[in-house]
């Protein structure tokens, strides 16, 4: 209402994510002050560290933007907070039933694969897994869009 027509809804998920992510980016950049030339030619180790930070920040800001009402964002935040982003967390595994037919077993394998892809999916039943997958997919799409925009802006200004 108080904004021009073409400006975004400040409460939309995208704006919340963008704000959080940009803040995180600025923080990351402040922690590693470097001149423009040296940043590009910095060591692979540096870039790798920054890459991890940025990746984590993007996921974290998306999870923060989504809030705690989603299982995947809760799981993601929990993982990030415990710095267990790359596994090593003991989770409840859902046992597969033995009387499944072959087709069902294939489907169950796929569902288990999907469980590994979606954060926090290990503890979900299939229905909520699919629900969370849908939401997670939407959020990832937004995330990719915003990040690509940022990259674009960077690339045009440098």
């Amino acid at each position: 209402m108080y904004r021009p027509m073409n400006s975004p809804n400040p409460n939309s998920l995208k704006s919340r994510f963008t704000k959080g992510f940009v803040k995180a980016l600025i923080r990351i950049n402040k922690n590693h002050p470097r001149s423009a030339s040296s940043s590009i030619s910095s060591s692979p180790r540096e870039i790798r560290r920054r890459y991890h930070k940025i990746k984590t920040a993007s996921y974290a800001s998306m999870a923060c933007a989504v809030g705690r009402r989603r299982a995947w964002s809760r799981a993601l935040l929990w993982k990030i907070r415990n710095q267990a982003c790359n596994g090593g967390v003991v989770r409840r595994s859902i046992g597969s039933r033995s009387h499944y037919s072959m087709k069902k077993r294939v489907e169950q394998n796929k569902v288990n694969e999907l469980r590994k892809v979606v954060p926090g999916g290990e503890g979900m039943d299939t229905w909520s897994l699919l629900e969370e997958t849908a939401h997670y997919m939407k959020c990832l799409t937004t995330q990719v869009k915003v990040m690509r925009t940022i990259v674009e802006i960077h690339s045009t200004t440098t």
């Binding site: 940009v22 980016l25 600025i26 990351i28 950049n29 590693h32 470097r34 001149s35 423009a36 940043s39 590009i40 870039i47 790798r48 920054r50 890459y51 930070k53 940025i54 990746k55 920040a57 993007s58 996921y59 990832l140 995330q143 990719v144 990040m147 690509r148 940022i150 990259v151 802006i153 960077h154 690339s155 200004t157 440098t158």
Partner: peptide
């Protein structure tokens, strides 16, 4: 894509005002 883009962001000029 998120990883790729964060990689890109990691390598571009960090001093930019966003």
């Amino acid at each position: 894509q998120v990883e790729f883009l964060s990689m890109k962001l990691a390598t571009v000029n960090p001093e930019l005002n966003i």
